[in-house]
Design a protein around this nucleic acid. Structure first.
Lengths: 230, 230
DNA sequence: GCCGCTCCTTGACGCCGGTCAAGCCGGTTT
DNA sequence: AAACCGGCTTGACCGGCGTCAAGGAGCGGC
């Protein structure tokens, strides 16, 4: 499906396209298409030849690796306004991870061949692409750091804090919507579902109450202190 | 110091320059310089404005993050023939990690400003840079996977196997030189020195004997089976 | 030589988190 | 309604890894 005017606003916010001149953007998305996926649809598999990179218009996508024993390790989860797999553009051995929808949603799929041609013509786009790549690179670095130096309840706390930017304070309390399955959050944070559940229970001592997919943080500063004690 | 003819051979092997036409390479390294560092010298600090990326001519460099409590988390360690910080080229907030020599050695420092200018002129260099970035990206992904799914002794085993990859046929014993301090290896593998030491002790049951900085693997297949049991 | 130092190893102990199991709850089917 | 099922929680247990502490090996300086 071609890119409609309603999607264009979201596309313009993608890190890899942000700040692009309107006409340059329009000509660029002419090569791309919008794909609607249902929950649990595979987008690409580890080892597949790299044909596209993607922007998320709606829904959530998990990037993961399959272990020999069948378990999967979540590398990263991307949501609306984020792009992924730009780093795979020049990978001759194919995507290093698999990608799958975790909620139904719509993706912008940009063919790499056409994109590389544009890169040759427009040096500014090179810089933009590097910048977008840098965003995801930093996320991986942070992931390594937190995984190896925080306890499970600290990681869960950091996750909640990361997701309460767009919500509203009720007085000093903040409500956070858990964006997807708790099982997936657990895996993304490098722990088992049981441990995640216990971590939430622990966080009650730090002003966090959870009911269903909704969490309320009574005191941001208190939680921050638990996540990174000075 | 300018780049000498003796260094040129090593520089040509860097992933980011590999396959470049000889004259293009020469004109490129004119902008760069060779720096000799002693052990434990800081190369850049997290948050510093990004001015260069680097190739390792000799010695070892650790990239790490400093935690609020003063401990450091090793993100990656780079050795001869590898390049690092290409991914930081377009990071306006500065390097996301700190870099320090762990052994005395020599680096090729490439100024990013001049490099970006070249990127604008030569589209092929864009592709090469992406490819080099992809190498380091995949390393980070692998690091996340192994850190969250392997036991400490499996990670140590994988580390040893990684360092003797192309060296010997099956059946015969293989000697591996530990490239740097055991404490650093431990940190790089996300464990404490004590745990690393115990992991080596465990690996004796899998045909690995260590004396000082030298390890001998009696049976590659046996160790592989321990690292990734089917 | 003796000292101090760093690096590494080994032991004892405790806690975090994984495993196995049971039970609760909400939604869907029959 | 009853039966079922998947997502989530909680408990009991235990193994792996971190922590603290002691001690050995190598090494440079005086």
């Amino acid at each position: 499906m071609a890119v409609g005017d309603d999607d264009l606003a979201t596309v313009r916010q993608l890190p890899i396209f942000r700040g692009l001149a309107p006409d340059a953007l329009r000509s660029l998305v002419k090569d791309a298409e919008v794909l609607a996926y249902s929950k649990r649809t595979a987008i690409f598999e580890q080892g597949d030849r790299v044909t596209h990179f993607f922007g998320v218009l709606s829904g959530w996508v998990k990037l993961y690796r399959l272990r020999p024993d069948g378990s999967e390790v979540i590398i990263e989860v991307f949501g609306p306004g984020e792009s992924f797999a730009e780093g795979a553009i020049c990978m001759p051995d194919g995507y290093p991870v698999s990608a799958e929808m975790v909620e139904r949603g719509r993706l912008l799929a940009v063919p790499v061949a056409a994109y590389i041609d544009r890169l040759r013509e427009d040096p500014d786009m090179v810089v933009r692409t590097f910048a977008s790549l840098a965003v995801n690179l930093k996320r991986l670095v942070s992931r390594i750091e937190t995984a190896s130096s925080l306890t499970s309840s600290q990681r869960v706390g950091a996750f909640l804090l990361h997701f309460c930017a767009p919500s509203r304070p009720y007085g000093s309390a903040v409500d956070v919507q858990l964006p997807y399955d708790k099982k997936l959050i657990a895996n993304r944070l490098g722990m088992k579902p049981e441990t995640f559940s216990r971590a939430l229970a622990q966080l009650r001592n730090h002003g966090v109450t959870v009911q269903g997919g909704n969490a309320r943080i009574a005191d941001l500063a208190l939680l921050r202190r638990h996540v990174s004690p000075d």
